[in-house]
Design a protein around this nucleic acid. Structure first.
Lengths: 205, 205, 205, 205
DNA sequence: GATGAATGAGTTTTCATTCAT
DNA sequence: AATGAATGAAAACTCATTCAT
């Protein structure tokens, strides 16, 4: 099972092919989410993309930059997905349930806290700043929704920032697996319901 | 440039001196908590302990074992501290507040989720099992308290395991720092109060 | 934040603009002189020229060729400048002083010996030959002047080749900087005078 | 012709064997002298010493440190050899001749200027400082001899530092090889004589 | 004429681990 | 009980060069 030998130089361009830069970013994101910054080497990413390391460095000058780009893209995608869900015109509580259900279904545990930690340890100050801004935007999206609902009287008045963080923290409970790999709830739908119910009792009027 | 005079002969063993094994474990724990498994090398630990790498290997056969021992010790310490606090004979809500305040004051973010993640990625199956058991014990301690309070009617009936995880998740909000390094609350005491108030509304009868 | 407007269509070729080939050569020469062959990458040259690496390869098939061309051009320029100075009709000693002063003033240490060393190590045999020939021509120019002056009785008879090399070696003393970056002489003019005086005592009749 | 497989861990100690640290330093010095800093990789050094790269890093934390150590050792050796020769109780002119003859015979072109250049480009500030100090000491040794001879009236009064540098510069002419690899003089002895004669005419009373 | 994309082979450095003493 | 010396494997990053456009 020999692979066709790779050739030097610029390859012939295939109109339908995704740009390599994007492939690299997507692959890297996936790997970083699964295993974290230090456990994924540039070689790992290269192999997973079927390109050489040098190709990755052509697009991303350092590993930190690749990680930064991956995080930014991911956080922005999440932010948009959150925004999309929260903008629907159904009752707030149901929107929250959807939020949880959809994110729990995305299989991978999008563990913000951990990303931020790895960022803090491994990124340069300027890279870290970018990532922090993106994280902030994510939380702001939820916060603003909380704020709106407070004003409309759907939920009680309170610290919207805290509410947003509390909500995300509670969501993370849905990812928990015990020693046997068992989740706390039987399905994402049930997890979503239980978690939102719990959250709701704290925020309802 | 004289050197400080040194006593001749074999130094008497200092009864009060901590055994090296413990020094290593404590130092390693501290470092692993701050920077994570992959960011701390055996060399780092050795330097911080003022012993050689070989000494560490004398006591802990692999890095994974050292990490495992560190986690076990830490989780057990936390478990005991939780137990100690929850066993007091003051009203439950106040005990919960104390729990949060004390842990938030311990400066370092004891981020269980992250430890478990690093464990999953880096430890052998048998090591991982030990760590998972220890984590479980920690949660069980809180869970049992929740169970007891349900039975005594202090809080409403519900899924005690979920309550325990929800509580810990909400506690983690207290660690959050934004881009400027600002926490959400002005003091640990206020954080504890707000978080428990929030939690309480969900669990009270 | 508007971009500066750009004219549509193919830009008219600017007659006055230097051909890229020359820009590349000049830039490369400057960089190689300052930092040496191995410390300057093709990327460095490209960046400094504001062209792409591929452009450089369009004109110079290998890095060795670029270095060769740079050395040849430089040595020829130096040879011509030496020739120009030595051909003047003022007394020989003064011509020698001018030679030193002008070269010391050229800020960069034109260290022939080092260029030849890097050439020996890094160039192909045929490239090396070209460079050696150019170096030879440079020395020959001085040698011939020495020869002429011997015949005219301005200086004593002796090994003209040795005299030429001795002169250049002494000139290099003028470049010396100590640990504090201090030169041996206060000005190029004084250096020139001292060095030529020293040389002169060895060669006068 | 398989090599005996290298084994992990500390090797059995052979009383007669030279310490590896010294072997590494000597080998590295030889290689750096011949090919320069950038042309010699840590791998090259390791292979030439028949140890692994990691062994080199065990003794010398960076390539720059290895180079620094190599230069320092070399310069000190040269300084001592110079000192030794200049301290003899024969006439000064003969001592100078010996100096040149011995150094020219050492086969390798000990090109101080070039070492200093590579040091400037590649070493850290603190490493550079050490090397500059060592270079300085070397020159100081000759300078002091010049000074003494001035005071004793063997040579004319003048700038001793300049004299020392001039002498070393003239010595370097002895290393010159033309395109065909021919030296300027037939033997080291003749080179020494010619060079010192030349130098002497400039410094005699 | 000039460029963007890609590579293979190297570079310096790190690190968990081993083993004789 | 503790250490000093050594290793193999991998990590991040560089660089001269190639080739389709």
């Amino acid at each position: 099972m020999k692979q066709s030998p790779r050739v030097l130089g610029r390859p012939r361009h295939d109109e339908n092919a995704k740009p390599k830069k994007d492939i690299v970013l997507e692959t890297a994101t996936r790997l970083f989410i699964k295993e974290g910054y230090k456990n994924i080497s540039m070689d790992d990413v290269a192999k997973a993309c079927n390109v050489t390391k040098a190709t990755i460095y052509y697009y991303y000058p350092t590993k930190g930059d690749l990680y930064t780009s991956a995080l930014l893209a991911m956080m922005d995608r999440i932010r948009l997905s959150i925004l999309h869900i929260l903008e629907q015109s159904i009752v707030f509580k149901e929107r929250l349930e959807q939020l949880i259900e959809i994110h729990l279904s995305a299989t991978v545990d999008i563990d913000m806290k951990n990303f931020m930690r790895e960022a803090t340890i491994n990124l340069s100050t300027s890279q870290l700043k970018e990532v922090q801004a993106a994280e902030n935007n994510m939380y702001k999206t939820i916060e603003q929704a909380m704020q709106r609902e407070m004003e409309q009287g759907t939920i009680r008045k309170g610290n919207a920032t805290f509410f947003a963080h509390a909500f995300m923290a509670l969501m993370s409970v849905g990812y928990f697996k015990d020693g046997e790999g068992e989740r706390l709830f039987q399905s994402e739908a049930m997890a979503a319901k239980e978690i939102v119910d719990f959250f709701w009792q704290s925020v309802e009027k």
